[in-house]
Amino acid sequence: MLAKNALHEIKKSLDGLIGERVLLRANGGRRKTIERTGVLEETYPSVFVVKLDPADGSFKRVSYSYADVLTETVELVVCRDGGQVRVPPTQA
Rank of each mutant, 00 (worst) to 15 (best):
P89W: 11
I18T: 02
T33K: 11
R86F: 02
D56C: 04
L76E: 01
K32M: 12
G29F: 13
T37F: 02
A6D: 09
I10P: 02
F59D: 12
A6E: 10
V69K: 00
L70C: 05
R36G: 00
M1K: 00
D68K: 00
K51F: 02
L52K: 01
I18H: 07
D68P: 02
D53Q: 11
V74C: 05
G19A: 11
D53S: 10
E75M: 05
F59S: 02
E9F: 13
D81L: 09
A92Q: 09
R21H: 09
K12L: 08
T43V: 15
R21A: 10
Y44S: 13
D53A: 13
Q91D: 04
S13T: 14
K32S: 10
A92L: 14
Y66Q: 00
C79N: 12
P88D: 03
Y44K: 07
E72L: 10
D56E: 14
H8V: 10
D81W: 13
L7Q: 00
L14G: 04
D56S: 06
T43Y: 04
A26T: 10
G19K: 00
L7E: 06
T71I: 04
V85S: 06
V22G: 05
S65W: 05
L14I: 00
G16R: 09
D15Q: 13
R86N: 12
V47K: 08
P54C: 14
S13H: 05
D56R: 09
P89D: 09
T43R: 05
G82V: 11
L7F: 01
R30Q: 12
A55E: 13
H8R: 11
K51W: 02
G16Q: 13
D56M: 09
S46F: 14
V49S: 01
G28W: 05
C79H: 14
V87F: 03
I18K: 11
Q91W: 08
S63M: 03
N27C: 12
R36A: 15
F59Y: 10
R30K: 14
S63W: 03
P45H: 00
D15S: 12
G29C: 06
T71D: 13
R25Q: 15
V85R: 13
N27I: 03
L52F: 04
N5P: 02
R21V: 08
S65T: 11
S13M: 11
P45M: 01
A26R: 01
I10E: 07
H8A: 15
V74T: 03
G16S: 11
V39D: 08
K4G: 14
E20V: 03
V47Y: 09
V50G: 01
E72N: 15
Y66E: 01
R86Y: 14
G82M: 09
V87Y: 05
L40S: 07
D53N: 14
